[in-house]
Nucleic acid binder design. Structure first.
Length: 430
RNA sequence: GGUGAGGUUCCCGAGUGGCCAAAGGGAUCAGACUGUAAAUCUGACGCGCAAGCUUCGGUGGUUCGAAUCCACCCCUCACCA
């Protein structure tokens, strides 16, 4: 069969929320290599799963011969995007934003091929925004914006209309800055397309209009759908908060586990959103899962694909090794070097303190991160949900940590695998 | 600057002198059932193994006793200037 065009593929994946005139955009993309951009504001020291779809989107374009620009919002990050945010945001200091910008830069470079000739471009809007003086800003840029239109945008209207909330001039100005980015990138690199989350539509159209007014060019916009879960809860969150792309913040093992736990109702959609597997291939996986009883394969495939994409093959294998060891139900097959490997692969682990007879089990396990508080450990203990080297513990043993973790019952003289609940594991060593 | 409405435990939101560690919902965690899924049911949900300790924007005060009353302050919002 003939290969789909980029837009056809994106559509088949459900990756398009809105576009400016679809025919014009299609024609534009067919006519040759297009330079496009997507912005990422530094709101933390790492990107998280919410950024993954746009990031992969840049790569999808690159795979089809287009040239992506990843824009780090060193300037816009200082202001804060009000779009569909219920509340005014806390401003971060310049140093922090700068530092975070650098973090994002490093991360983004891992995803897209950057290079001198025709390769992707990494830009920072701080470069052209920081030195614009107020008067120039107001006269040269501000003059092109109608406050009437700015207020009418859905993304800020809610804030303005909502009882008990408001919007500062600072945040209100955000859309002008983002529009200016598009104008600047059009001027500097001939960028003719901006992509972003569906919440960015207002900011993108603002930019399109500014480019037309200032540069006399007709440019395009495309937004991606908000990733939702079938049960209505927020995508990309776990007990510990956001799932980060930085392996130091979310280990590849935790990352792999996150995807493995994807509900059936979401998994095929997610395969389309988060992997580069062909749409037909994904439909095939779904058909096979349906035909078979029991557990679907899709989660495993999804977890493997995304972990490999965000981390690498080695990290994926590590995550798989841990998963295999912990969830196969049989720890006795692990040899001594396997335990050391589990630690290296990123299984949470910690050294047992020397004053074990003074420390309640609740405190010990809570501090290891197996639960948020001692109370929760208590609850788990009372329900028989705590296993130390496969042996169940009770609340009565709470003060007998020294006995439970006695050297003679350690595996290979030093390891204790502690399990709390069905899927939380921690390796203690002497 | 004026007037009005507010600031409650992760979020929403009740609570207007003792019965309040504070209703209800959401989120989260654990158990049962399963497939490390969903749905459902059960339990937990400020901290502490416990005795107990610390909360209701802040600081003082009234009271035997305050999230609740008073004073001042800080912050948010709306309308007006």
């Amino acid at each position: 069969m003939t290969k789909r065009t980029l837009l056809e593929d994106l559509k088949a994946r459900g990756l398009i929320a809105q576009t400016t005139s679809e025919e014009e955009l299609a024609a534009h993309l067919e006519a040759g290599s297009v330079t496009l951009y997507c912005g990422f504001d530094p709101t933390a020291d790492s990107l998280h799963l919410g950024h993954l779809v746009p990031l992969l989107m840049l790569k999808r374009f690159q795979d089809y011969g287009h040239r992506p620009i990843a824009l780090v919002g060193g300037a816009t990050g200082m202001i804060g995007d009000p779009s569909f945010k219920a509340q005014e945001r806390q401003l971060n200091s310049a140093e922090v934003v700068q530092q975070w910008s650098d973090c994002l830069k490093r991360q983004i470079s891992q995803f897209i091929e950057f290079g001198d000739d025709g390769g992707a471009i990494l830009a920072n809007n701080y470069d052209w925004t920081a030195n614009v003086d107020v008067l120039s800003f107001l006269r040269d840029i501000g003059k092109h914006f109608s406050v009437n239109k700015m207020i009418a945008k859905e993304s800020v209207r809610q804030r303005i209309e909502r009882e008990g909330e408001g919007i500062s001039f600072t945040e209100f100005t955000y859309q002008i800055l983002q529009s200016y980015d598009f104008q600047k990138l059009n001027e500097l690199y001939g960028c003719t397309l901006q992509i972003g989350g569906s919440d960015q539509w207002g900011n993108i159209t603002g930019g399109i209009e500014l480019v037309r007014r200032m540069n006399g060019k007709s440019v395009h916009g495309l937004t991606l759908p908000l990733i939702t879960k079938a049960d209505g809860t927020k995508f990309g969150k776990t007990e510990g908060g956001a799932v980060w792309l930085d392996p130091k913040k979310t280990s590849p093992y935790a990352f792999y586990q996150f995807w493995l736990q994807t509900p059936d109702a979401d998994v095929y959609r997610f395969l389309k959103f988060f992997t580069f597997l062909d749409v037909d291939q994904i439909d095939e996986i779904e058909a096979q899962d349906r035909a078979r009883d029991g557990r679907p394969e899709a989660q495993r495939i999804l977890a493997e694909e995304v972990t490999r994409l965000v981390h690498d093959e080695e990290a994926l294998q590590g995550a798989r090794r841990i998963t295999e060891a912990l969830f196969s139900g049989d720890h006795s097959s692990l040899d001594e070097s396997d335990y050391a490997q589990l630690q290296l692969d990123g299984l949470p682990s910690s050294q047992l303190p020397s004053n074990l007879n003074e420390v309640p089990l609740t405190t010990l396990l809570a501090e290891a991160g197996l639960a948020a508080s001692g109370k929760q450990v208590k609850d788990a203990l009372q329900r028989g949900a705590v296993l130390i080297n496969d042996r169940e513990c009770s609340m009565e043993q709470n003060m007998s940590a020294a006995t439970l973790f006695a050297p003679e019952s350690a595996r290979f003289g030093r390891y204790f695998l502690v399990k709390l609940g069905k899927r939380k594991h921690h390796l203690f060593y002497l």
